[in-house]
């Protein structure tokens, strides 16, 4: 089973890359044959990824959410699932190249750094910790989806303002659709991240008294506040979508920054053994 896991671990980024390539051909050429191939590949990659996560759970005796790289592969899977649902519901396939790229990148990083180890510290064996990591996966996936839709919104907004009727104008869904998808994803992400912070804090309260100084925890709270301000500006103050979405992108960069910073600059923090 470990051998199969290793094989799947290296196959998944390859499958995601092929899917991204098929969606890219469809995006650039508007080729329905490429779209059909992309859809088939997407089904294959989703099934393979689900099998990979199931085998990993079975092989190591825990859901693959305990470590950063396990969370990353789960985020890649969640983003892919979100995209497939969006494509099925809206018949809109032209954003596939961008969203599946997120899955490809996160899975590629996970595949390179993930360890095939069965060690699972007893301290992590708690329902609160499970809720914390599961909601973190949903939150990160939602924010990644909102960032992609947000970036595409800004791209199309500028094309329209500058009266450039190029490839992005042709292929992207309407501005209102991109804005709606981005804002819905922000609301899902905000809710999930709130659960992540609350469950994580409750779990670490007694076990790790110094957790409130953990840079990752602090940055995550800042990220949540940034997204909260963006949502408030949109729903309460009726500030234009462009500024709200720009602010949400700042939140996403902070989120990525916090993940990288906590691993590189503070490797001793947010590690629970």
């Amino acid at each position: 089973m470990i051998a199969l896991l290793r094989w799947l671990n290296y196959c998944l980024p390859l499958l995601y890359a092929l899917t991204v390539a098929a969606y890219a051909v469809d995006f650039v050429r508007g080729d329905p044959r490429a779209a059909r191939i992309a859809r088939r590949l997407m089904e294959i990659v989703l099934v393979s990824h689900a099998v990979y996560l199931a085998f990993r759970t079975f092989a190591f005796g825990h859901v693959p959410l305990a470590r950063a790289m396990e969370v990353l592969t789960s985020v890649a899977f969640a983003v892919a699932v979100v995209y497939v649902i969006v494509e099925r519901r809206t018949r809109e396939r032209r954003t596939g190249v961008f969203l599946v790229s997120v899955s490809f990148l996160t899975q590629a990083v996970s595949s390179v750094f993930i360890r095939s180890s069965g060690e699972f510290p007893a301290v992590l064996n708690s329902p609160l910790f499970a809720a914390h990591t599961a909601s973190a996966v949903i939150g990160y996936a939602a924010f990644a989806v909102s960032a992609v839709y947000g970036a595409l919104f800004l791209l199309l907004y500028h094309e329209l303002k500058l009266r450039r009727f190029g490839l992005f104008f042709d292929r992207l869904p309407p501005l209102a659709t991109l804005s709606r998808m981005c804002l819905r994803a922000i609301i899902v992400g905000l809710s999930a991240l709130a659960v992540t912070i609350i469950c994580g804090s409750a779990w670490a309260w007694n076990k790790f008294p110094g957790f409130s100084h953990d840079p990752k925890f602090l940055l995550t709270v800042v990220v949540w506040i940034v997204y909260m301000i963006a949502a408030w500006l949109h729903y309460d103050r009726h500030i234009g979508d462009r500024r709200v979405i720009s602010l949400s992108l700042v939140g996403f960069f902070l989120l990525v920054f916090s993940a990288i910073l906590s691993r590189l600059a503070f490797p001793t923090f947010h590690i629970f053994t």
Binding site: L160, P174, L175, A176
Partner: peptide, 8 residues
């Protein structure tokens, strides 16, 4: 087409 591109 331009109107649809903005408001859907």
């Amino acid at each position: 087409a331009l109107a649809v591109k903005v408001v859907g």
